[in-house]
Design a protein around this nucleic acid. Sequence first.
RNA 1: GUGGCUGUAGCUCAAUGGUAGAGCGCCAGGUUGUGGCCCUGGAUACGCCGGUUCAACUCCGGCCAGUCACCCCA
Length: 442
Amino acid sequence: MSKPTPLSGFPEWLPPQRAIEQYVVDRIRSTFELYGFAPLETRAVEPLDQLLRKGETSKEVYVLRRLQAAEDASDESLGLHFDLTVPFARYVLENAGKLTFPFRRYQIQKVWRGERPQEGRYREFLQADIDIVDRDTLPFHYEAEIPLVIGDALGALPIPQIRIQVNNRKVCEGFYRGLGLTDPEAALRAVDKLDKIGPDKVAELLIETAGATDSQAKACLRLAEISAPDTSFDAAVRALGVEHPLLDEGLDELVRVMEAAAEHAPGLCVAELKIARGLDYYTGTVYETQLVGFERFGSICSGGRYDNLASTGNERFPGVGISIGVSRLLGLLFGADALSVSRPVPTCVLVALPTEEQRAACDRTAAALRRRGIATEVSPSAAKYGKQIRFAERRGIPYVWFPGSDGAHDTVKDIRSGDQVDADAATWTPPAADLRQQVTGG
RNA sequence: GUGGCUGUAGCUCAAUGGUAGAGCGCCAGGUUGUGGCCCUGGAUACGCCGGUUCAACUCCGGCCAGUCACCCCA
């Protein structure tokens, strides 16, 4: 068999990176649970028609095909989910009778997208998603809670500080309508490109695709320029002189999100009126998250309010949610050398093996340490002690345990300092910092 | 999915149209009470496939992978 090669867009980490990923997921998970989000997992596949309800994303979906399937089975075809929100919406509809509302859940799962990979962009990647849905109507205050959860979840990690950029679709849509534009969606798509192509090109686009006049395009740009770390955006928008009921509603909501953030997490959120979000199902607050100092990475966590994603003929389950791009976040930080782990393996203690005959005794020592939660392995062979120490050193195992011979005490050596002391496997405990792998920034 | 750039040992990098070296790392041995220094020796690479050529790692094409832009978005 020839040497296997990597698959584009399907990253596989080495053990140290995987250790970091698990640590990060554990922390995120515990924060989500602290806010009362219930764990959930949905299947990896959805019927294709369910997945495509979201819009023109068909090209991104990996279709599942049975090798022996008849060719005419296409209308039953399945696709791998490309996010966790759409499957969740389906799940809510399916289980509405068994759930109690408002329902809040988290899901940390792989998703798949058939896109061209590059740094921080993969075809298979991990997302950590929270959503809150309610029946018929969803109180607005959840839109203010979501950023606080994320602030806690990501703030508890050894990663750069985050900044959540917040906007509200109603502000944009109301403003565009108040301005007299008839195709707010097109205007939104044009404004969304502001950072990429600049104001002049956006103005052209607004005129071409959204049917804006020159002065309407300029007004859209003036709205998009507004950015504030507090509620001062409200006055700035009103100063533009556009009136519309939806605009008032949106501004009011955005003010409340910013007020809640100011009280519970000062500096976390910034109102950024150019944030649009590509997905068309958002109807209210939208979020995008940057790492401070790593803005070039783009958004590592985004979401928003959706009113119509989970609805059948007569039932409606409006929701709000956000998703942390765990793989993207980690891939980018790994690339920037901004995350590291204290050792590549969990092992804290290596029990040295004097002779192969003493393996059983060494296994007992290891078992005694493990019983007290100390990750331990026994040396692979009874090589010279120098080699056994090197074995530990290579792996970053901090302690080597030496069985005492002829009734002498066992000893344990910290191979970083060289300190070696008498020790008893029933009582010895390493310093807390050495007990487990430690994840640190930088 | 479209286009650009890149692809030499585990890592960072050399050299050359006539089949490749260094540093670090790795392995073995020596020294060492139980390693880290030092000494000696060793293994490992031209991403893959094809074409041009007497001869290709070096030129050309395709593929794969990485990266960047578009697209889209975590």
